[in-house]
Simulated scan of single mutants.
Amino acid sequence: MAATKTTDTSTYKLNHTMLRVKDPKESVKFYELLGLTQIRKLQFPEAKFDLYFLAYDSPTAVSHGHSVFDREGVIELTHNYGTESDPAYKINNGNVEPHRGFGHTCISVDNIQAACQRIEDAGYKFQKKLTDGRMRNIAFALDPDGYWVEIIGQKPLEATADVTTTDVTTYRMNHTMIRVKDSEKSLHFYQEVMGMTLLRTAPNPAAKFTNFFLGYAAGNVTSPTPAEGVSSAAYREGVLELTWNHGTESDPDFAYHDGNKEPQGFGHICVSVDDIDAACQRFEDLKVNWKKRLTDGRMKNVAFVLDPDGYWVEIVQNERLAGKPNFDQ
């Protein structure tokens, strides 16, 4: 009798966040300004779309030199042919009513004032500058489609006040934020089903919301030693932030937009696993809601699970652990 395949969630990685974009040239240019490198491009001309994978890949980067699906903190840009020349096409960034859901991606930087100035000097707009509002230690830049990119510092604000330079090779793709209706249900799903660990809880009772930060053991990278007054989480990649606005769980009619219904924008987060067949069998045994099983459709090497809010979670094979690429392109 053949041995039953097993899967170890401690090897899982929060691999990437997928965003649809109108014009890939403009979007790649923006994310390269943030220090990311295009590490792979997959083309599907028969289906009329291309995928651009970007990640931090300097010699000091957490996943330097790794294959696409053996990383955390990857950004996948999806371009559907023709959108770049369609004046009516517009992305849903997830932050405008009534289509809120996905919130933002986040990069952590060495010197936040200098990093923000560099982005502004390049001609990009901000949803929130450092000097706006009450929270003076974070900013939100806008990418070409209006997606929010949060910027946080790896050092205390006062330590970089007089620093005018910034080194993009030290940046990290820190986290992805999605809003959730019921924090208990979402925390159970991401911890008990997806195998993540709760890293930190950040309640804000005055503003009536709480943020939960989760990640995988495989991504528990805290080097270099965090600066005094800065959470080690700022040095991590592949963190998932769940934002719970208090009271939504008790409203039976309340729902967030998953990004895949019209108007579209954010597509999914993706988890890479040690053995995709065993992982999917485990999900099956846990009675998850499926968007796509491995056996559905033409692509037999990816699956999609639905979280409690209907967000899509892609499941892919970690190529390093399989010893072969997921795609032959």
Rank of each mutant, 00 (worst) to 15 (best):
R172S: 08
L294M: 13
D143A: 04
L14P: 02
M177C: 13
C270N: 08
Q154H: 07
H104L: 05
D296A: 07
H246L: 10
Y89R: 02
S250G: 12
D275A: 09
L321A: 02
L34C: 11
F69L: 11
L187A: 07
V28G: 09
T169Q: 10
G259K: 00
M196N: 01
V239M: 08
V96N: 11
T225H: 10
A3E: 14
E26F: 04
A161I: 15
G73I: 06
E158S: 11
L157P: 02
A161F: 15
C270V: 06
T9A: 07
Q127E: 14
K13P: 04
K324D: 03
A3C: 12
G133S: 04
T17P: 07
S10I: 08
K287Y: 12
N93P: 13
G73A: 09
K129P: 10
P87S: 06
N318D: 05
I152S: 03
Y81S: 12
F304K: 07
Y12Q: 05
D253N: 15
H246P: 08
L14D: 05
W148H: 09
R134I: 10
L33H: 06
N92K: 00
M1C: 13
A217I: 13
K287F: 12
V313S: 04
A55T: 06
K48E: 13
K125W: 14
G323A: 01
P226G: 03
I75K: 08
A3D: 13
A234G: 05
Y81K: 11
T131K: 14
D167V: 01
N220I: 05
G123S: 09
V68Y: 04
E97Y: 07
G82K: 00
A233L: 15
A303E: 07
D275R: 09
T164W: 03
K287S: 13
I119F: 01
R136H: 15
M18L: 11
Q38Y: 09
K128W: 02
R179G: 05
I75L: 15
N92M: 04
Y12V: 07
A47Q: 14
M1L: 12
K181G: 00
A2P: 15
S232G: 12
T37W: 01
P205N: 14
P59V: 00
I152C: 05
